[in-house]
């Protein structure tokens, strides 16, 4: 089948998509956007999180066909022309990135959290990010990064 969708503001299309392919696979293997990660492909780790029509989803659980005509934003679309998004900058600055495999998913989830709740409490941060696994950091520096991004947002 053929799919057409908008990713990071650009129109994309792919041909010969097998019905069983996920949106994650289509992004990574057909559209040249491997930033969204494939740590479990069963909806358990959050590494594949993208926005679809403004709502964060696990792209491994969305069939590529379901993304037909939708508007998708991936980690590759977070930075603007003037540089990194404050969430991205905070993850770099706070040492929240080790291997970084979880990072794209955390960034999208954090971006969404701060859009909904610009100054979350620690329990709110933990609750919002509970669907994103990280095996390297123990999450302390990820919390630091989310707090830093929130206060950068408050000053902006």
């Amino acid at each position: 089948m053929r799919i057409e969708l908008t990713v990071n503001g650009e129109h994309h299309e792919a041909d010969d998509v097998w019905e069983g392919e996920s949106l994650l696979y289509a992004l990574r293997e057909r559209l040249g956007l491997p930033g969204s990660k494939n740590a479990c492909e069963q909806g358990e780790c959050g590494s594949c999180t993208v926005y679809m029509d403004g709502v964060p989803v696990c792209s491994c659980l969305v069939a590529a066909g379901q993304a037909q005509g939708r508007d998708v934003t991936t980690v590759e679309g977070l930075a603007g022309d003037d540089g990194l998004d404050p969430v991205q900058q905070a993850f770099v600055d706070c040492g929240a990135v080790q291997c970084g495999f979880c990072t794209p998913g955390f960034l999208v989830s954090t971006h969404d959290l701060l859009a909904r709740n610009p100054s979350p409490s620690d329990p709110e941060i933990r609750e919002a990010l509970a669907g994103n696994l990280c095996r390297c950091t123990g999450y302390e520096k990820i919390l630091d990064a989310v707090r830093a991004a929130a206060s950068a947002g408050a000053q902006a």
Partner: peptide, 23 residues
């Protein structure tokens, strides 16, 4: 000192090439 990792920016923009990203 604690300088930032040189691959940090690549990792937050999705550009860092992991072994599963190769094509």
């Amino acid at each position: 000192d604690s300088p930032l990792r040189p691959d940090g920016t690549l990792k937050v923009t999705g550009e860092f090439a992991y072994s599963s990203d190769l094509w």
